[in-house]
């Protein structure tokens, strides 16, 4: 019973924090554009409005896929420690996280391909190609972390960095951090790696056929995704946090760096993006691995 309660609490927390992050991201983007910007709770308003709208479904697979995308990411989130609190204790978190993170994208791919819209299919194929691009360098950096700490538990990596700010992995393996940050930019679908969304080109790609509460679920998936990805970076490189508040503030910093990069870069084509990801972040990750081995 306690576990069920924990799961509900953790997922609500992740959704709320993710949505507020998205709202703050829009506000910061507006300030970069010299605009006033929407209020920070705008994303919550958007989701409530979308949930109350008429929704057009195409078939059963579309319903299933949207729910699968959200639950996949929430499942990932449950294995990530948030300032020492974790829903499921596990000794091999990283392996589980590596597997579960893909489910979100696959569920989204299943749902929007079922709609049969050609723009959605182009967007999904681009998103999955991009996934191939960023997972290789990101997982190589993770491998470095596993070798360095002799453990595949996020909690152990987290505790190894405790004590001083100089124990953080960002100082121990700075090259790996830069590689992970580049991969994170692609993972969150921010520019220059937003070829799968591309509103002016393929009409917002995977979301083209989603309406009402399907788009609302898409927003929630995006919010939990932002939470998961920033939480991973904070746990791996910024030493987690002593309390939930410091943890969330560190997450917000990681997210805002991504948002600012998002606003000052143009867009790569998909093959350029994958080539970039496989050369530069991958090269940096491999250099980091070699340095760790020496």
């Amino acid at each position: 019973m306690m576990t069920v309660f924990n799961i509900i609490l953790y997922s609500l927390f992740a959704i709320l924090v993710g949505l507020i992050f998205l709202g703050i991201g829009r506000k910061v983007a507006a300030r970069v554009h010299l605009r006033y910007g929407p209020p920070f709770y705008q994303s919550i308003i958007d989701v409530i409005k979308l949930m109350s709208r008429e929704s057009i479904t195409h078939n059963f697979v579309m319903d299933l896929g949207m729910v699968m995308a959200l639950t996949g990411l929430i499942g990932t989130m449950l294995y990530i420690p948030i300032a020492g609190h974790i829903a499921f204790e596990s000794n091999t978190n990283i392996i589980v996280i590596m597997y579960l993170m893909a489910i979100g994208h696959l569920g989204m791919a299943m749902a929007v391909s079922a709609s049969g819209n050609p723009y959605a299919n182009i967007g999904v194929s681009r998103a999955l190609t991009m996934m191939l691009g960023y997972e290789v360098p990101f997982f190589t950096v993770m491998l470095g972390l596993i070798i360095y700490n002799q453990s595949s538990s996020v909690m152990v990596i987290n505790l190894a960095q405790a004590g001083s700010i100089w124990n953080w992995n960002i100082w121990q393996m700075p090259i790996g951090f830069i590689a992970a940050e580049m991969a994170l930019q692609a993972m969150m679908g921010e520019k220059p790696f937003d070829a799968m969304i591309a509103p002016a080109e393929i009409a917002s790609g995977p979301m083209v056929e989603l309406s009402g509460r399907y788009l609302g679920l898409g927003f929630l998936t995006k919010a939990v995704g932002v939470f998961v990805e920033t939480a991973l970076i904070v746990n791996f490189f910024f030493g987690g946090g002593t309390s939930v508040i410091t943890f969330v503030i560190k997450q917000l910093e990681v997210f805002l760096i991504a948002v600012i990069f998002d606003n000052i870069f143009p867009r790569y084509k998909i093959e350029q993006a994958v080539k970039f990801l496989w050369i530069f972040p991958m090269g940096l990750a491999v250099i980091q691995l070699i340095l760790l081995a020496i």
Binding site: R26, A30, H33, L34, R35, Y36, G37, P38, Q42, I45, D46, I56, P199, A200, A203, S204, M207, V208, E209, L210, S211, L215
Partner: peptide
């Protein structure tokens, strides 16, 4: 839409498709 009158203040934004 842009910095002169900025309608995103009121939560109004452009969307790409009629479904949204």
């Amino acid at each position: 839409m842009t910095s002169r009158w900025d309608m995103e203040r009121f939560g109004i934004g452009p969307m790409a498709t009629p479904r949204q």
